[in-house]
Design a protein around this nucleic acid. Structure first.
Length: 242
DNA sequence: TCATTAAATTGTT
DNA sequence: AACAATTTAATGA
């Protein structure tokens, strides 16, 4: 990315969301009309260039954040220096609720794998919604519950030896219907981005994807992946090697 | 709208 | 990492 400082400043300035962007925020839909209108008024969006960090480990959490458009990667700095990727965050993913809830600093880094649009509401607004909206509480509770399961899955993925299994499970996480409702049957992701997410070479990921395609679990498309059998990806086991 | 060309992405080695 | 093949996006008649 070679943008002039002026262009960068313009990109980094938070702005009001467009109607389309507001429509892409899943939790707004569960709110009653009056609550929703008040919440919408607090939403700001920001354009993030590929490679930029959305939040840094240790920084104070000022907003509850979500992906309107694009793809982010959530990872942690481990003491041994090897970064561990927790999750890929596609369109419709909202995150940092645990941190915002406890008013703590971020415990991970989030960076953009491609140019993305990220939305946020201030922590104060987040707590107001928790205090006054049952619907919002339900949404956040479900979100926390699902994310717990995803973190546990991420640890299992990290231990897996088979590349095909790792890719299959990672894709499942990205296609998670509750955490990532913005993702339809087709996930817009480059194989290069997926490789960076699972920490493998693009070649190896390409190879694994083709195995999974041959198994009729997914279909490769230019610039994306179509899932044919989500449950099959979830339970995929590598063929025993000779 | 269509044809041509450039750029991006995938598939192979 | 390099390269060829394929798909999409951009351009201009």
């Amino acid at each position: 990315m070679t943008l002039s400082p002026k262009a960068q400043a313009l990109l980094l300035r938070p702005r009001l969301p467009t109607a389309t962007e507001v429509a892409g925020i899943p939790w707004l839909r569960v709110l009653p009309l009056d609550t929703r209108e008040r919440a919408v008024a607090e939403v700001r969006v920001i354009d993030i260039a590929r490679g930029e960090q959305v939040c840094r480990h240790g920084r104070e959490a000022t907003h509850w954040l979500g992906v309107v458009n694009g793809l982010l990667k959530m990872s942690s700095d481990r003491p041994d220096g090897v970064p561990m990727t927790f999750a890929g965050l596609p369109s419709g993913a909202w995150f940092s609720e645990g941190t915002v809830l406890k008013r703590e600093p971020y415990r991970y880094n989030v960076e953009a794998l491609r140019n993305s649009v990220v939305a946020g509401i201030p922590t104060g607004t987040f707590h107001d919604l928790l205090d006054h909206s049952i619907e919002f509480n339900r949404y956040v509770m479900q979100q926390l519950n699902e994310r717990l399961g995803q973190f546990i899955a991420a640890r299992e993925i990290d231990r897996m030896t088979s590349v095909e299994e790792r890719v299959a499970r990672s894709l499942c996480a990205l296609f998670h219907p509750v955490l990532h409702p913005g993702v339809g049957q087709v996930l817009r992701i480059k194989q290069e981005e997926l490789a960076y997410l699972v920490g493998l070479s693009r070649q190896r990921v390409n190879e694994a994807l083709q195995v999974l395609q041959a198994a009729k679990l997914l279909q490769l498309e230019y610039g994306g992946v179509r899932v044919l059998d989500l449950d099959g990806l979830r339970t995929y086991a590598a063929a025993p090697s000779a």
